[in-house]
């Protein structure tokens, strides 16, 4: 049983993550050094977890959406909106708890809106969520009036820069969310329902799954995840930057899900592997920062690595490996 659990941990994603981390270590020998400083862990590896947390949280929601054969392009804009709402409320003197609840409610509402467009009006997900992707950032800019709303509320800042058991709060939040959502989809039938709707929505509906409700719930989860990520990035810089918060992160979240082996055609997903995918992306970012590459190479290096990972994962290469395996066995005989 233990061997089985361990075996499931060794797959393309985890091998890729370890590979990227080892590469970083080769480029920067101090990469794995972790110190205890001011009551918290401090080191490049912690940076990977901490900086990767917002995209990991987005990826949790995104994976569920993609598993239903959908996509949520609005998460970056929802992040900006949630951050803008929280920051303007605390600056206006409202209690922190209210600001946080309001920001989460905004995310939930945005998710419900997306879900209703997709599930009830049958608009294609890419179009339905594009609406909020474009409009959401504009709304965020309206809320902040185009400037960075800076705040000094310690409770809100704690979400972004505080620490619990030595780990940065974003990591704790992402991990908690990962455990909760994984339990929800794997210990109940919800995961199976999501897969069924993703494979064939009509068949799932005929089989008695309330696919409309399920879709709305899934998009609402994605909106909620985006709001949490938005709170984290806003708290991290002590300010709501409506122009830049979450900009293009929807693409990173989709990429994380794809690296994690979730099929864009729906039906096959793994939340945990999507989080590993997010960490792979962040490990590359952090690696570039500590290795001292000139910035002109950033995107080329990232593109090269991602291409390599995706090629390794492709059906072609698994067929090729099978063929190679058969041939070797044939030769041994």
């Amino acid at each position: 049983m233990n061997r089985l659990a361990f075996g499931r941990l060794v797959n393309t994603q985890t091998v890729a993550l370890v590979g990227v981390l080892l590469l970083n270590w080769l480029l920067f020998p101090g990469f794995f050094k972790i110190e205890w400083q001011d009551g918290r862990l401090f080191g490049s590896l912690i940076d990977v977890l901490n900086r990767g947390a917002p995209v990991a949280i987005l990826a949790i929601g995104m994976t569920a959406v993609i598993a239903t054969k959908g996509v949520d392009l609005s998460v970056g804009a929802v992040m900006a909106m949630a951050g803008a709402v929280a920051a303007t409320l605390v600056v206006a003197g409202y209690p922190t708890a209210l600001a946080i609840v309001a920001a989460l409610a905004v995310g939930l509402l945005c998710g419900l809106w997306n879900g209703i467009l997709v599930a009830l009006l049958d608009i294609q997900p890419i179009i339905a969520t594009l609406v909020l992707m474009v409009a959401g950032r504009g709304i965020a800019q309206l809320i902040t009036e185009g400037s960075i709303v800076t705040f000094s509320d310690p409770a809100l800042i704690f979400i972004g820069t505080g620490s619990l058991f030595g780990f940065p709060m974003p990591v704790v939040i992402a991990f908690t969310l990962l455990v909760l959502v994984t339990l929800a989809v794997r210990k109940t039938a919800i995961g199976l329902f999501i897969e069924a709707v993703g494979v064939n929505r009509s068949a799932a509906t005929l089989a008695g799954i309330r696919s409309r409700l399920l879709l709305i719930v899934v998009y609402a989860l994605s909106g909620l995840c985006a709001a949490i990520a938005g709170l984290i990035v806003t708290a991290d810089i002590h300010g709501a930057d409506a122009n830049n918060a979450g900009l293009w992160l929807e693409l990173d979240a989709i990429l994380a899900a794809v690296i994690g082996g979730t099929s864009l055609l729906g039906g096959r997903f793994s939340i945990a592997m999507s989080v590993v995918g997010a960490l792979i992306i962040q490990a590359m970012n952090t690696g570039i920062l500590v290795s001292g590459f000139p910035p002109e190479f950033n995107l080329v290096v990232k593109a090269g690595m991602i291409t390599l990972i995706l090629v390794i994962q492709s059906p072609f290469s698994s067929q090729f490996m099978n063929w190679l395996g058969r041939r070797n066995r044939g030769a041994a005989r």
């Binding site: 900086r51 990035v233 930057d241 830049n244």
Partner: peptide, 11 residues
Amino acid sequence: TRSKGKEVMEG
């Protein structure tokens, strides 16, 4: 941006 400035400086 502020957040990228912070992340790069951490590195």
